[in-house]
Amino acid sequence: MTAEIREAEAPPEVAAIYARLREGYGLPLVNLIWRRFAALPGVLPWAWESVAPALPLLPAARDRVAASVQVPSLPVGVEASRLAALYNRGNLGNLIFLTALMRGKEGHAVAAPASPPGMLPEPPPLPRLDALDEDTARRVRALATLHGHEGGVVPTLYLHLANWPALLTPLYTALSPMMATGRIAALRDGVLVAASVEADRLRPYLAAPPEPPVHAMAEARELLRVFTGRVIPEMVPIGLMMAR
């Protein structure tokens, strides 16, 4: 798996796209998949320019996918619940957009202009995994290991929850049996079905900018495969449970 470019370290051309992503999503942060795209030559502008024309249609598509997922509540406290709601907006939007991006533009349509969504509140700073104390880092990694993601992906929500380290072990205890019994996998599959329908609706609205260099495009497609197939659709129901 490729590296990432964090927001605070972004060069001007990357920072400019990050700013557009934050405005377009109404999010005060840039999600991991986009930070990984930024580390590949030409991939971030290609991905952003491809999906930007469909942004006016994203809120309704995102709401339909969220409404299709029936999940129990997972008490985590008010602050962590707000953080999860923030990630839900990003994860749902990214899953729809990136599934459409992976499948490619099909058809021709133009979305009606719309005002950007309201910006969600700023979350606490995102810690660095290697800067956490040993016990907290171990608990963050344990949560990530539940998923068995290729390349050892650590979902950013789990890393962000290190701001409340006392939550990490109870969250692991709650999620572990749901993983073991296939409950999360079943929810993931339902999310994938709903997101697939919305992605196909958006494909005519995508742009078709020139693709990045071949080697970067190959890495981008691998990222898309992993993130849209496992990483994001598993975090959607978990985030929805936390936000409830």
Rank of each mutant, 00 (worst) to 15 (best):
A3R: 15
E4M: 13
E7S: 14
E7C: 09
A8P: 01
E9P: 03
A10Y: 09
P12L: 12
V14R: 07
A16Y: 05
I17A: 09
Y18I: 11
Y18W: 03
R20N: 10
E23T: 12
E23M: 13
Y25V: 06
L29M: 15
L29D: 14
V30R: 05
N31W: 03
L32R: 14
W34R: 13
R35G: 05
A39E: 06
P41F: 04
A47C: 00
A47G: 11
P53E: 07
P53Q: 05
L57N: 05
A60R: 15
A60H: 10
A67P: 06
L74Q: 06
P75C: 04
P75F: 00
A80D: 00
R82Y: 04
A85M: 02
Y87H: 13
Y87C: 05
N88P: 03
R89E: 07
R89I: 05
N91R: 14
G93D: 01
G93N: 04
I96R: 07
L98F: 09
T99S: 15
A100G: 09
R103C: 03
K105F: 08
G107Y: 02
G107A: 05
G107W: 02
H108N: 12
A109G: 08
P113K: 08
P113S: 09
A114Y: 01
A114E: 01
P117D: 00
P123H: 04
P125M: 13
L129V: 01
L129E: 06
E134P: 05
D135S: 15
T136M: 08
T136S: 12
T136W: 10
A137I: 04
V140S: 06
R141L: 13
A142Q: 12
L143V: 01
A144R: 00
A144K: 00
T145M: 13
H147K: 11
H149Q: 06
G152P: 01
V153S: 10
V154C: 04
T156C: 09
L157N: 07
Y158P: 05
L159N: 01
L159D: 01
L161S: 09
L161V: 10
L161Y: 11
A162K: 06
W164P: 08
W164I: 03
P165K: 08
A166P: 00
A166N: 10
P170A: 11
Y172M: 06
T173N: 14
T173G: 08
A174G: 09
S176E: 15
P177K: 10
M178A: 14
M178R: 15
A180K: 15
A185R: 15
V191R: 10
L192T: 12
V193M: 07
V193F: 08
A195P: 14
V197E: 14
R201S: 08
R203L: 02
L206H: 00
A208V: 09
P209C: 12
P209K: 03
P213R: 02
A216L: 02
M217I: 01
E219H: 08
E219C: 06
A220T: 09
A220E: 09
L223G: 06
V226G: 07
T228Y: 02
G229I: 02
P233K: 08
E234L: 08
P237R: 11
I238T: 09
I238S: 06
L240W: 10
L240M: 15
M241Q: 13
M242Y: 00
